[in-house]
């Protein structure tokens, strides 16, 4: 009896979570510009229409550049911050971590407005570079949260052993630390990439004439006849996200197996 209730609950819950997402591909292939049931027919038209939209291609390219740049920047900054905070004690450490982690909890609208003010005060032009700055700011706390656990799992005597065997600190980082925290670095890159890719508020405030993909999509929603194309675009983004998540999990499992570690974390 109670088992049946639990099963029902689980099914309803899963539907609630994922059914809306399934509407995306359904309408992306529907041969009608009106988003409503019943479906009228099957078509690839909306996907073709994407290839003709130059603005869309520009936005997608902007998004990819911004996501790549800010994920790399955020991961590098996080590497520096975590190796300092996990390994060393110094005055003001707690405060420093706090200040770095704050953007994770601040409403994005506040970050967006303040960064816009700063950029305008500094006399800078709004461009993809200002968006990269904003995205690096919000991605860094996530990267730190991921890398912190990688660093904490790393036995400090491995680094000491490397120093003891005659390697310099830099070569120790290159030969021991980096390979061993690589799963964390990969996760950090992929997650920061995903966060940047679908971030809207900050990108909206900081983009000038070069919109990102979410900003472009938002601008298209004003035109009802463009909605099916947006659905097609959404379908592609959905596939990309699933692909990235799968890739990061496959990489993580492979490295856990390769290092013979016990797999303590499930899929994130």
């Amino acid at each position: 009896m109670s088992k049946r209730i639990l099963t029902t609950f689980m099914i309803v819950f899963t539907l609630f979570l994922y059914a809306p997402t399934l509407l995306l591909p359904i309408f992306a292939f529907n041969d009608s510009s009106i988003i409503a049931f019943p479906l009228s027919g099957f078509t690839f038209e909306w996907f073709y229409s994407l290839t003709e939209a130059d603005e869309l291609r520009g936005a997608a390219l902007n998004s990819l550049i911004i996501a790549a740049a800010s994920s790399v920047l955020a991961t590098c900054l996080a590497l520096l911050a975590t190796s300092a905070t996990v390994r060393y004690k110094f005055p003001g450490k707690g405060l420093m971590i706090g200040v770095i982690m704050v953007p994770m909890f601040l409403p994005e609208i506040i970050i967006g407005v303040s960064l816009l003010t700063v950029v305008l005060l500094a006399g800078l032009k709004l461009s993809i570079y200002t968006i990269i700055m904003g995205h690096t700011l919000i991605c860094t706390p996530f990267a730190i949260a991921i890398l912190r656990s990688s660093f904490q799992q790393l036995d400090p005597s491995l680094e000491e052993a490397s120093l003891d065997l005659g390697e310099t600190r830099f070569d120790t980082f290159r030969r021991i630390t980096l390979p061993l925290i690589m799963p964390g670095v990969t996760s950090s890159l992929l997650i920061a990439f995903t966060i940047s890719l679908d971030e809207f508020v900050i990108a909206f405030f900081l983009s000038g004439t070069e919109p990102t993909l979410p900003v472009y999509i938002w601008s298209q929603l004003r035109f009802p006849q463009r909605i099916p194309s947006v659905m097609a675009l959404g379908t592609l983004l959905l596939l990309l996200s699933i692909g990235l998540l799968t890739l990061s999990e496959v990489l993580r499992r492979r490295s856990v197996r390769r290092l013979g570690q016990h797999d303590t974390s499930g899929a994130w």
Partner: peptide
């Protein structure tokens, strides 16, 4: 040094 945990490089 031989460390207590042996510090064998796992990779």
């Amino acid at each position: 040094m031989v460390f207590q945990s042996y510090a064998i490089f796992p990779h």
